[in-house]
Design a protein around this nucleic acid. Sequence first.
DNA 1: TAAAATTGTGTAAACGTTTACAATAATCTT
DNA 2: AAGATTATTGTAAACGTTTACACAATTTTA
Lengths: 339, 339
Amino acid sequence: MKGATLKDVAREALVSVASVSRVINGLDNVTDDVRSRVLSAASKLKYIPHGGARSLATSRNNTIGVLLPDIYGEFFSEIIRGIDQSARECGLHIMVSGSHGDLNETVGAIRSMAGRVDGMLVMLPFASPNSLREILPNDFPIVAISSQLNDDNGGVISVDNCGGALKAVRHLYDVGCKRIAHISGPQSNFEANERENGFLKGLETCFIGQEPLVFEGDFTEEAGRAAIDEFFKNGTPPDGIFAANDMMAVGALTRLQEIGIKVPDDVAIIGFDDIPITRFTSPTISTIRVGIFEVGKRGLNYLYSMLEDKEFQSTDKRSGIVFLPELIIRASTQKVRKV
Amino acid sequence: MKGATLKDVAREALVSVASVSRVINGLDNVTDDVRSRVLSAASKLKYIPHGGARSLATSRNNTIGVLLPDIYGEFFSEIIRGIDQSARECGLHIMVSGSHGDLNETVGAIRSMAGRVDGMLVMLPFASPNSLREILPNDFPIVAISSQLNDDNGGVISVDNCGGALKAVRHLYDVGCKRIAHISGPQSNFEANERENGFLKGLETCFIGQEPLVFEGDFTEEAGRAAIDEFFKNGTPPDGIFAANDMMAVGALTRLQEIGIKVPDDVAIIGFDDIPITRFTSPTISTIRVGIFEVGKRGLNYLYSMLEDKEFQSTDKRSGIVFLPELIIRASTQKVRKV
DNA sequence: TAAAATTGTGTAAACGTTTACAATAATCTT
DNA sequence: AAGATTATTGTAAACGTTTACACAATTTTA
């Protein structure tokens, strides 16, 4: 029992395929009589329009592709939630693809996805989205989230990671820290670099004369623990730590407590991302918050504008959208003022 | 500049469309000469096969739809991660749709998705997936996750929620609790009901004679707090609590501590789900763990079998797959044995 | 009431693939 | 070296929609 087609419904309802199509698509130029005959025939046959045939005829897929680096945790679900909500409002489907080990795999995923979507929302922290242009037609709509895209036909949604990091450092300064350290993300990661730049900039401004003290982590809890061991092995230990993400801040916190160092009194800690865990550790962890849900939502809206409004392509596109993260103060930086 | 088609590539490479199609699809009955001409023409024109046309011709979408209740947190990202990984292995795309307020919206989402996918992986805690059959053709492949599906043409992946809850209760008994309470999920939720049944069953077995003490929550932290206020308002308070999910366990824990009751010494707490937060509260929270990632992965594989193997439909299908959750013992139930 | 405008319906041509089949060229058989 | 295979290529017919256009039936206009 193959699925019913337009033609089957037409036969059942004793009308032409054109009329069925009109009813199904909700056009108003049909008699009530025809409409009801078609509708009942359709539901009797459990008719489902063939999406492929539709997009062939209309050259519209009503689907956008979402390419994400790694499908992990809160961050991922929040961004998808934003995208999904916005997509529903725009009447679009979303096709997601995550966790691509290497570039080849990513390229493959893009290739096979491109033919089924009207545009793509991509987040590629390790590779430049410009490489997409070597595969995709120049006018294929792309919106990049948090990454560079030097491109005349794509938009960018970015988060001011550097500015956020700066806020973190300035906060450590404000609560009285004298010597601070940074646990960075991997060098290959674009956002990690920006956060490190923010740290360095803040150091120059507020902690004049201090040598940069940076441990390169990889965004895992374990890296946070390792950083502490490193910082306290030799040299003067810091009294304030800015971790490039919350998981590393959590790792640092637990390791500090294990070796008997008090947070925040001996060392203040601040993370980045505002994942839920930060509210449940003790002490709770200060952090820099980015409205991930909003980022996803705006990203999809942006792409939608590009799709709908052909003019749009040549006007606003260059400017893009920038999100400024916000400082969330919790217990891990509430040290007794020592100044 | 519209995207190039097969015909364009054929013209450029001086071959027929059939040959181009063969090269693109990796068939081996083409000369090396033709293959290389086609390949270079294709990359020169940045040719992307039109997915719609493809699925029209082959009647295969190479895409499966994933319908989830709510796109929130860890649970969601884990299940998608499992599905995504498995889909990549099977060469399938996934189309996701989440957060459906009411049934109508869900029906709409299903309708418009059905025509673009080869099968669906659905999780509908509030509605019976049998209602899908009123919309979809009888032979449309469906796999339901954690919900009933009395259907000859669909599979079920289920989690033994009842068995998991039983383990939790038995554990409370083993650590010496004398009187236990349950914070349930909403009545309308299928899994919540099963967990409550497990609680009741455990009560009958281990706590002979105790009246059931149940507070109906809604899976939020706030509900956990409210439950505590209720339990400690009047009557004999419990010395062991089983919450239907971890967030409510967290809420209960913090509320207990606020009103000066010690966990685990005065009251032991155990949750359900093993979300990451349970490892960072103090004390850490015991829980019942389900391998969500695995559930997603197996779910997709199951669906894939149905797609590939027509015979499959009439053999294994009824049995389905059941996951038995595992007990994770942490600090919140390590009370000094009082027996 | 005849001409003109409006409305509802049907016919048939796209849309871009895949693939059965026919046709041709190349390679084996004896 | 002629016939029989085999390997490569091309032609054309699906696949299930949408939609421009033509036509017929109705209503409006003068």
